[in-house]
Structure formats: structure tokens, C-alpha cells
């Protein structure tokens, strides 16, 4: 090699250089907490709030321009009805009724999904059974099962729970199975290397490793269940005295009280948002985001 710096004709020579390192202690630790402004800009809640405010403004402007409370009540009117029904306890009662049914159905659905996936991961035959069942029942809308549920269980909570289980079970089981299958071979081997087997292997390796997928299943299952429940209440809410939110909406429609219909829908949306962006967000932030398994 040539010791002198190479120089092309017509170009200034490029000198070599060495410098002392600049001070890097100003950066502080390897990890540094972000400042308040950095957090605010990054904060999903703040971003979502901005979107919500925009939607509300558009709604209010459109309703005022239309000026027909029977077809499209304004945001102000809806909120007034909403807060009135919250204050007199009607809406809260209805919501609690719905959520209680939902919780029972969701929990039972999860238990069944856990049992099914355990059977499925234990053997290839089990896997075939689960994938066939899922392929059969997943596309079947839960509402389509409602007539059958009414024949089997009659009017009331058991029928609702039945259709909720149906909507939760397949989504969660399918996602969990996909998640288990996607666990990298090396991670599996390093789990088995320390002698993990059976339930401990599933609990300590497979479930955390498949958690992004499992969580996705839980979210889809929740959305299906909530939708199904409200729809089912609308269908046979008529004959049920202590109805849920679906019944609240149904009643209001019979009275042509559109503002109350809107306020019921608002409650449905609100609960959906809270579960999705508060509860599930919090779980995500503490698990898959923290572990870098999902962005």
C-alpha cells in the first residue's frame, strides 16, 4: 500500500486526522427517561383524543346544518340525554347488566379455548381437530346461532352466554395455536434444554413466547363478544325486563327517541374504546411492547 495520502488530479488532498473523543457523559446513562414533551407527543392517548375532538366538531356542525333532531341529533343533545340517563342510573344499570353477561361469557370462552388449545398442542391429531373445528365455526356469525340458543336455553342470560362463548372461543383458540406454532425453534430448544416439560414448558416458554398472538386473539375475541352481545340484546331485548344496553337502544327506537338511541350507541362505543385503548393498551405496554416483541 502507498503510505502517502492518495491524491487524484484536480482535487484537494484529504488529510488524515485523529481527534480526542468528545465528552459523552452529557447523554447520561445508557437508558434515559424521555422528557414530558417527548412523552406527550408520543402518547397514544393524546393522539387519540385529538382525533376524537375532530370527529365531535364535524358531528356537531353537520347536525346543526341538518337541523333535524329525529334523524340526527346534535352532539350536545346526545350528551345531554347521555348524562341525564347516567345521572338517573338507567344507563349505568343497563351497562352493568350487559357487562356482567359479557364477563361470564368471555371467561367461559377463554377457559374452553385454553382446554382446546392444550389438547391441540399435545398431539398432531389434536391440532387437526382444532383447525377443522375453527375452520367450521369461525366463519359462522354468532347471531346466526341465536335462534338455536333460544330453543336450547330459552330467553335470558344462558342464551346470551352461549353466543358470546361461540364468538370468543374460536378467535382466541385459533390465535393461540398460531402463536404457539410460530415460536422459534431455538427458543423451544433452549426451554427444553433446562429440562422443562409439559405444563411448565407451556406456561414458562410457549405462552410468553406466543403472547403477541394470544393478545391479538383476546382483543379480537373481546370485540366479537361485545358486538354479538349488543346485537343479541337488540333481537330479544323486548321480552326481557332487566335488559342490557341493546335493550336500552331498542326501547328508545320504539319511542322514536333518536337522542337516546345515540346515547346508547355512545355508551357502546365508549366501553369499546375504554377496553381497547385503556385496558388492552396497558397490557400491551407492560408486556409485548416492553419486550420488543411488537411495535
Amino acid at each position: 500500500m502507498n503510505a502517502e495520502p492518495s491524491q487524484k488530479p484536480g482535487q484537494a488532498p484529504r488529510p488524515e486526522f485523529e481527534v480526542d473523543l468528545i465528552e459523552a457523559t452529557a447523554i447520561g446513562d445508557v437508558e434515559r427517561p424521555l422528557t414530558i414533551t417527548e412523552r406527550l407527543v408520543n402518547n397514544e392517548a393524546v393522539q387519540r383524543l385529538t382525533i376524537l375532538v375532530t370527529i365531535v366538531v364535524i358531528w356537531e356542525l353537520y347536525a346543526r346544518w341538518l337541523n333535524n333532531g329525529l334523524l340526527f341529533p346534535s352532539f350536545g343533545e346526545t350528551i345531554r340525554t347521555f348524562s341525564k340517563d347516567i345521572a338517573n342510573g338507567v344507563l349505568i344499570d343497563r351497562t352493568i347488566t350487559s357487562l356482567r353477561t359479557l364477563a361470564i361469557g368471555y371467561a367461559l370462552g377463554l377457559v374452553l379455548a385454553a382446554v382446546l388449545t392444550t389438547v391441540a398442542v399435545a398431539s398432531t391429531a389434536g391440532t387437526r381437530v382444532l383447525s377443522t373445528l375453527t375452520a367450521m365455526f369461525n366463519p359462522l356469525p354468532a347471531i346466526a346461532l341465536l335462534p338455536l340458543a333460544l330453543i336450547w336455553f330459552g330467553l335470558g342470560t344462558p342464551s346470551l352466554v352461549f353466543v358470546i362463548i361461540h364468538s370468543v372461543l374460536w378467535a382466541v383458540a385459533l390465535n393461540t395455536l398460531i402463536g404457539f406454532r410460530g415460536v422459534p425453534e431455538t427458543l423451544r430448544m433452549s426451554g427444553r434444554n433446562v429440562g422443562l416439560k409439559g405444563a411448565r414448558y407451556v406456561g414458562l416458554i410457549l405462552i410468553p413466547a406466543a403472547f403477541p398472538s394470544i393478545l391479538a386473539g383476546l382483543k379480537i375475541g373481546w370485540a366479537f363478544a361485545w358486538r354479538t352481545l349488543v346485537a343479541a340484546e337488540l333481537v330479544f331485548g323486548v321480552s326481557s325486563r332487566s335488559g342490557g344496553i341493546g335493550w336500552y337502544i331498542f326501547e328508545a327506537r320504539n319511542d322514536l327517541d333518536t337522542a337516546t338511541v345515540f346515547s346508547g350507541l355512545l355508551a357502546v362505543i365508549f366501553i369499546g374504546l375504554v377496553v381497547e385503548s385503556v385496558i388492552f393498551r396497558a397490557i400491551e405496554a407492560r408486556t409485548v411492547n416492553l419486550w420488543g416483541m411488537q411495535r
Binding site: 422459534p184 431455538t186 430448544m189 433452549s190 427444553r192 434444554n193 429440562g195 413466547a209 416483541m293
Partner: peptide
């Protein structure tokens, strides 16, 4: 079967538990 008397350092990076 695999066992902790034979600890293995694998060639791949994904052998650590990300959680």
C-alpha cells in the same frame, strides 16, 4: 432427552427469552 447437565449455547440469537 434434553437436560440441564448438557447446557447448550445455540448458534442463533433468538435463544434468549425476550420477556
Amino acid at each position: 432427552s434434553p437436560g440441564p447437565d448438557r447446557m447448550m449455547v445455540f448458534q442463533e440469537f433468538e435463544q434468549l427469552m425476550p420477556w
